[in-house]
Write a protein that binds this DNA or RNA. Structure first.
Lengths: 157, 157
DNA sequence: TATTGTTATACTCTATAACTATA
DNA sequence: TATAGTTATAGAGTATAACAATA
């Protein structure tokens, strides 16, 4: 009775869930050393790479809903990592700017995360990782276009 | 400003989250046609493949906490797909048995899911999918062993 | 009229402590 | 004492509706 889930293991969706659920808590442990979680880390990276963007652009880039992005930016601001500056062009929007502290923490946490990623992908070759990235990107794209075309109707056809 | 997240895209953990978040809701749509969700579907598959196992074995096989498995089996039982029969060997435990209706639904929903998986992995070769499965399995295994060894201490060393 | 940021809210998934009945 | 199933609960993560200020 070693492999009770053998009839599920061939399903890509199941493989994805298992890999994601296993790695997620460990990623959070690494980021917690910097006072970050996944959403705040990825937001910080994007703000550092694209200073001046607004919250909607940030939310869209990360596929996070706008209401949920509010508290993410709140937290980054409370930690002194990011500033909301009023945009001149559009006074409804905030231009998000990283602070020096935010830039420094982004650099440090990225180093730690890249070290961790090397552990996570131990035993896999560069070619494997390239294929993995291509597969995951394709799956994401396929899923998004399937969602748009109403799967219920398709699969019952 | 097309690729705001280009500095995140090389991270396997980020790729995993994006692929998983995109495919998850579509998988749920497919399963919802059969009155199932991911947890109930995967549980049903395992019960059909391993009739007579108990709830702890089922929970361990799917990496679901025992308290959360209770309502999953409750739902399967309420739908008439699975029966809790008292085990003779150990009267604390339930032996989980699929009903004929449960076996039939497992077969139908698996067919639909495999059709959907083919759409999800469109554009990928058999070799790609083999590599993908190997990578995701390795990541799951690496993450589980990292979790056991306390990452905080490792990464700050 | 449409959009940005926001509040409130709700639903799912996940995680832990503590109970009961058996072993 | 240890384990199977259960209850209650709490925390993430995620989703939608509706509002004020601005376009």
């Amino acid at each position: 009775m070693q492999h009770l889930d053998r009839n599920l293991r061939h399903l890509t969706g199941y493989q994805l869930r298992r890999a994601n659920s296993s790695s997620m808590p460990v990623v959070n442990l690494v980021l917690a050393e910097f006072g970050l979680r996944r959403a705040t880390y990825s937001s910080l990276v994007i703000i550092v790479s694209n200073p001046g963007l607004n919250q909607r652009q940030l939310a869209d880039a990360l596929a996070i809903e706008r209401p949920n992005m509010v508290q993410v930016v709140d937290q980054l601001e409370a930690c002194g990592l990011v500033e909301r500056t009023k945009s001149d062009a559009d006074r409804r929007a905030y231009a998000l700017q990283p602070t020096p502290k935010g830039r420094a923490l982004e650099s440090e946490s990225t180093k730690a995360l890249e070290w961790f990623e090397a552990q996570l992908t131990q035993g896999l070759s560069e070619a494997d990782l390239k294929t993995l990235a291509r597969c995951l990107t394709a799956i994401e794209r396929n899923a998004n276009s399937l969602e748009a075309t109403d799967v219920c109707k398709i699969s019952s056809a």
